[in-house]
Design a binder for these strands. Sequence first.
RNA 1: GGACGCAUAGCUCAGUUGGUUAGAGCGUUACAUUGACAUUGUAAAGGUCGGAGGUCCGAAUCCUCCUGCGUCCACCA
Length: 888
Amino acid sequence: MTDAKQEFEKAYEPQGVEDAIYQKWLDSGYFTPENLPDFAERKEVFSIAMPPPNVTGTLHIGHATMLAIEDSMVRFARLSGKKALWIPGTDHAAIATQSKVEKMIFETEGKTRHDLGRSEFLRRVNEFAQNSHDTIVNQCKKMGSSLDWTREAYTLDAERNKAVNVAFKQMFEDGLIYRGDRIVNWDPLMQTTVSDDELDRKESKAPFYYLKYGPFVIGTARPETKFGDKYVVMHPADERYAAYEHGQQIELEWINGPITATVIKDEAADPEFGTGVMTITPWHDAVDFGIAERHGLDKEQIIDDNGKLLAIAGEFAGQPIKIARKNIIEKLAGKGLVDHIDEDYVHNIALNSRGGGIIEPQIKKQWFVSVNKEFARDGQTVTLKQLMQNAVRSRDVTIVPDRFEKTYFHWIDNLRDWNISRQIWFGHRIPVWYKGEEQAVGEAPTGEGWEQDPDTLDTWFSSGLWTFSTLGWPNKEAPDMMYHPTTVLETGYDILFFWVARMILMSTYLLGEVPFKTVYLHGLVRDEQGRKMSKSLGNIINPLDMISKYGADATRLSLIIGGTPGNDTRLSEEKIAGFRNFTNKLWNISRFVDMQTGGLRHVEAMPVAVTLADKWILGKFASVVDKVTQYQASYQLSLAGELLREFTWTDFADWYLEIAKVEKGKDDMLNYILERLLILWHPFMPFVTEEIYARLNNGLIMVAQWPVINEETASNNPFIFGGTEQDYNNRGEALSARSIQEEFTRLQEVIVAIRNIRAENNVPPKQLVEIVVTDKALFMYDDVIRALAKVSNVGFDDDRVEQMASTVVAGMEIYVSLEGLVDTAKEISRIENELIGLRKYVEMQTTKLENADFVSRAPEKVIALERAKLAEAKDKVEKLTGQLASMK
RNA sequence: GGACGCAUAGCUCAGUUGGUUAGAGCGUUACAUUGACAUUGUAAAGGUCGGAGGUCCGAAUCCUCCUGCGUCCACCA
């Protein structure tokens, strides 16, 4: 970097610089790990496959959270000298995208996809997807995401299609993919099946009809399905129906005339529910389908693909469900077959969560992935379910927070075969071709007359391959495969099943290795009242708006700090504004160091600490570096951020910089700490740190070295790692880190106590006061005390005069001269109040230490500590009492 | 019905092997502000850690039960 010295404006204005900084990063090429300095020497690999946002629209605050967290992880890895790779991409989100475009076209042109035809419709969807994609890419950049754009992928592009076809073929050949007539979730609105996981259940109140069915009374909320009901089912152990035998036939009058019903005894019938008797509709109910399968019963379709009744319904044929229901009940009532009606029945109806209609179970010929079928693997037989379970049970994949492991196992236990074929147009075609009786799988066969399966694949089939389809697979020799398994998969807990589980399935099956080592699940971002953000509520916080208002760094911080994995977080604009303030604080800290030291600069070696404050800040900083590193490595991002904020604002700015105004000769120390502090912050707030770092003329901060403070790098200041119990006694001696911290804390307490007395007595902040202390050691810091507590002179014990307010801190007495300002009555009451609290404490401690059990059972360290605290409190009581006496 | 989570200051939340008189940010109050920063500084007020038991020398922390809120899964025909 050869930039001329840049001005430090009074306030940080992110709007003016963020885009240019991002461009600088892009120009550097460092988002591509191979371009990193010393790429070959970087031993460890760190990789994340970004969860590809759906090309259904724009990024919301949840995406912003994902980007903020993942970018901080990647930047930390890059700074720590790893080959850091973060792969961007988008998801075609088959059903969701098609549904959205269909709606748009219908609203604007009044046309359906069938009006347009398959190829024109797909052209329109792709056009829409491309626009969404461009918006998404732009938003990722606005967030500062250090994604390797040279490796960008799309779940529906040619390379991913190849991976999909290879995966399909292998599963087919292992017998894990089959085609069969099974009951599936049919969406009559979108005319497609959807998977079990893509259903939303909505509570709804509907009349529940009790109907006379021969000698029985059966209950149903769906009389329109009852035409084919010729089986009546009861629990084998239900005493009430012991007289009826399995297989027994009963003649009875039903909706459209007399029918013959057959008694079936099956444990699926719940004796506790209703009358304990039910009729079944195997074609339109999954449980009924199971009963029918067990007993080899007939299955008849009642409702067609459009939700209208079929010929079996007789006079009701062609009627849509809603209308038919009413008519049927009328007819049944007329025949005296309605026993009674429960109007307050509440049940759940299933909806297609991707913007479709009310699900009607149907039996259809579909493609399935068999999760329970055994196949050979390393000389043993396993099932896909077992592969999924083993990956987590063996800890090859760890889930953060770990309670989600339970949820994961529970989901797998209940997993049924996965319906992977969809009747929509947008998506990967099922890679199967037919010609007469012939069938080809995987690649398009050559020759005439072959027709491809018209269906498309469930979108999660292709996203299940994401961690390796983005790295060159199915070419197992692809150089990028060195980045697999990826290091961490970071996503919202809401797609643990949809996606995370399926990636584990695909990767363990196809590659024989896990897709990622750690799953980090973030929570949902809610509004300040804890509600989900939604358009209808009008409570959406748009990340782009926040970025343009407060900057990307502030937006990122608000999404990381204060959130813990797996838990929802509340976000408000005030919170973001608060972090904007912090961004500016960091800027001004740097501005001050710049002015104070004649320009920011790189300081290679740790400077020798001279004063107590120097030693204190270095010791503190060493501990901060250590902890932040640990927090980052263990994905405890919020803790890292909070610790950094505390150090930056309180320790560094409020104390050390203030001291630096009176203790000179800290130029190297200030620059040394500031540079490293910026690096520690960089993963969280990349823009402002890069902007400040530009003024150091030391290259880009994004490829700086993560600070390490150890015996070697701190050899100038051995106290940091020296003994811990050496006594402090005088200036300049080798001191332990601990005694330094204690001594500095003492100094802080003295200063705060003086400020406190000043505030209590309404001394104007500018007015200087004199103080008297009883501990000569404090004279060493009189310049600091004078500056930070606005003191004109520090006197010793003998100089004590009247008209002084007093207090006791860390065993020493402090008197503040108030030159007539002192309000004696107020002072007396203040001290008396303090004494009340102290005496209570002394009493409590005494009781504790007189407890024989405590003294004999607690560790000695704890006892010693408690004794010391008691002694100190007693001492303070004594001194304050003395002060009080002299005042009265 | 099954499982899980949350309950700590007015608000949002930390609190990692049980051990200072329980912390932070925001908000509130008082004073101040030409000097890095009003996107600021100094100081203060504010909590019997949801309730009841239990284990322990010692519990916000571990166990049991209860209450309230939330989430997921399964679904009853």
